[in-house]
C-alpha cells in the first residue's frame, strides 16, 4: 500500500497560554505498507525511515499493543482510535484503509490533555480523577465466603461493563466539548452497583466530579460521540447514572459543621 500521511509535529510541550506551540501538520509519503500491519506498526516503519534520514521520529504513546492497557491514542481522520468501532489504535489494521489513502493523524485535543510531544499527550488528569476517589477505602475485612454478599447478576454485569474502561481518553478526544463524563461515569458506575462500592457513593460522586471540573474538561451535551469512539463500548448509560449519583450526593450533603464532634481525626 502507498499512503500519504499528515501528522501533527510539535517539539515543545503545550502550555496554558500557548497550547499549539510550534506544532503543525507535516506531510509524509510512505510506500510498501502491508495491509496486515497494525496502525502502530505502520508508524514504526515511518519512524525507521525518518531515523535513517536523520530526522526525528514521530513520538506516539503505546505499550501493550493488545488493546488492553489504554496507552495508545491517535485521532485518525477525525475519528478517535480510527475508523473501526470498538477497537484501539494498536488493534487497528491497515486493511481498514484504501491503497493510496490520505490519512490525518492528530493527538487527543483537550485543554486537560497537554501535548507532551507530537502525538503524545499527558493524561495524568485521569490519574488525578481516579486518585480523588475511584477506589474503595473502607475496610471490607478478611476475604469472605464468595456467597456471603450476594450480588444480582444484572448489577454485576453493569459494574463489569463500566470496569472495562481502559482510561485511554478517546471519549474526551471525540467529544465536541472535550468532556470526560464517559470516563468519570464509568468510574461511578463501576462502584455504585456493588455493595462494597455503595458505602462511599456520595463522597465518591462529589469528589470525582469536583476533580473532573478542576481539570478543565468540558460539559456533556448528550451528543454521545464518546460512546461511538470508545474502544471498550462503554455505554452512555454511565453518564446518566453519574448525573443521578451526583444530584443525590449533593442533596444529602450536610453543611460543614461549626461544632467539632469527637475532636480532631
Amino acid at each position: 500500500m502507498k499512503l500519504t500521511l499528515h501528522i501533527w509535529r510539535q517539539q515543545k510541550r503545550s502550555t496554558k497560554d500557548n497550547f499549539a506551540q510550534d506544532g503543525k501538520m507535516v506531510r509524509y509519503e510512505l510506500d510498501h505498507v502491508s495491509p496486515d500491519m497494525s496502525f502502530l506498526e505502520m508508524l514504526d516503519v515511518l519512524n525507521e525511515q525518518l531515523t535513517r534520514k536523520g530526522e526525528e521520529p514521530v513520538v506516539f504513546d503505546h505499550d501493550c499493543r493488545e488493546g488492553i492497557c489504554g496507552s495508545c491514542s491517535l485521532m485518525i481522520n477525525g475519528e478517535a482510535h480510527g475508523p473501526q468501532s470498538g477497537t484501539t489504535t494498536c488493534q487497528l489494521h491497515m486493511r481498514s484503509f484504501q491503497d493510496g489513502a490520505e490519512i490525518w493523524i492528530e493527538p487527543w485535543r483537550a485543554a486537560a490533555f497537554p501535548v507532551i510531544k507530537d502525538l503524545m499527550v499527558d493524561r495524568s488528569a485521569f490519574d488525578r480523577i481516579v486518585q480523588a476517589g475511584a477506589f474503595i477505602s473502607v475496610n471490607t475485612g478478611a476475604p469472605q465466603d464468595a456467597n456471603a454478599i450476594p450480588v444480582p447478576k444484572a448489577d454485576a454485569d453493569k459494574a463489569f461493563d463500566a470496569a472495562t474502561c481502559i482510561g485511554c481518553g478517546a471519549c474526551v478526544a471525540a467529544c465536541k466539548n472535550a468532556s470526560a463524563m464517559l470516563f468519570v461515569g464509568a468510574k461511578v458506575s463501576h462502584f455504585v452497583h456493588l455493595p462494597q462500592g455503595r458505602v462511599e457513593r456520595e463522597t465518591r460522586a462529589r469528589k470525582l466530579v469536583a476533580q473532573m471540573d478542576a481539570e478543565g474538561f468540558g460539559n456533556c451535551t448528550n451528543q454521545y460521540e464518546c460512546e461511538a469512539a470508545c474502544p471498550k463500548d462503554i455505554p452512555v448509560r454511565v453518564i446518566a447514572e453519574m448525573n443521578r449519583e451526583f444530584v443525590r450526593a449533593k442533596a444529602v450533603e450536610e453543611p460543614p459543621s461549626k461544632k467539632r464532634v469527637g475532636g480532631d481525626g
Binding site: 485535543r109 485543554a111 468532556s179 478543565g216 468540558g218
Partner: peptide, 9 residues
C-alpha cells in the same frame, strides 16, 4: 475553552 486547538480533520 476545553478544546483550545481544533482538529484539522
Amino acid at each position: 475553552a476545553a478544546r483550545p486547538v481544533r482538529y484539522s480533520k
